[in-house]
């Protein structure tokens, strides 16, 4: 579904990603791990056209990503940022925003169903954004990205500012929608435990390159490269 071939990214004469080749199949659930600064966020943003690359090709459903209108791409490939950020005054505006952009009708049943699996009450939609807790804000951010029913969901360390209870809630929700809607999910995480619980494949980035790409089981097995062993144990 997504083929990344020989992609490099440089900013201010500094190489951020170097000749990355990876491919993701439809319906896969992938973890991306790696030290901070290794280029995980940059890589993720390439996939929905929020960042540009200097060399190589990215294909989405066989089409060169540069030939797809970024807006169409972003509607199919959702992105949730590390820090939850709600805009406007009321929570509802965030949910309706993507719908209005797509000139679609709000599917109340879908929203209700999503809110329930996110363990949120419907009344939350009429609250002011600033009155929500961090965990609630991140769950609403997730729902906001799901309003257009994306085929691919990119999640960038979305639980890093959440407490264990909210983290659990969000993880369960992601697994739920993964099963129910057959979304392709790429999850960047710094948490070893989370990686074990989530994707079935784990890609490890180091200094802008793919250092390892294997099943999650293999990744955490014992015959491991020293660098990863250190990372897991730290």
């Amino acid at each position: 579904m997504i083929n990344v071939e020989d992609i490099s990214v440089a900013r201010n004469h500094q190489t951020i990603l170097k000749e990355i080749t990876l491919s993701f199949k439809e319906g896969e659930f992938i973890n991306i791990m790696g030290p901070s600064g290794s280029g995980k966020s940059t890589f993720l943003k390439l996939l929905n056209g929020l960042e540009s690359f200097n060399g190589g090709v990215i294909r989405y459903d066989g089409r060169d990503i540069l030939e797809i209108d970024p807006i169409d791409l972003r509607r199919e490939v959702g992105y949730v940022f590390q820090v939850p950020y709600l805009f406007g005054e009321k929570v509802r505006e965030n949910i309706e925003y993507p719908i209005k952009l797509g000139k679609l009708e709000l599917d109340e049943d879908y929203v209700t169903e999503m809110l329930t699996s996110l363990n949120l009450k419907k009344e939350i939609l009429d609250k002011k954004c600033k009155d929500l807790s961090g965990g609630e804000q991140q769950r609403i951010s997730l729902l906001r990205s799901l309003m257009l029913r994306p085929k691919v969901l990119l999640l960038d360390e979305i639980t890093s500012s959440l407490d264990p209870i909210n983290t659990k809630l969000v993880e369960e929700f992601i697994k739920d929608i993964y099963k129910k809607y057959h979304i392709t999910i790429i999850l960047v995480t710094h948490s070893v435990e989370q990686a074990k619980r989530m994707g079935s494949r784990t890609v490890f980035f180091k200094e802008g390159t793919v250092f390892m790409d294997s099943t999650t089981e293999e990744f955490f097995s014992h015959q491991q490269k020293d660098f990863i062993k250190e990372f897991i144990e730290s």
């Binding site: 929020l50 807006i71 972003r74 940022f81 950020y85 805009f87 952009l101 797509g102 906001r144």
Partner: peptide
């Protein structure tokens, strides 16, 4: 810029 980037990520045009 964060708000702008989030809106872009949701499929907004640059102007929207």
């Amino acid at each position: 810029y964060q708000e702008v980037e989030i809106k872009l990520a949701l499929g907004a045009t640059e102007k929207t």
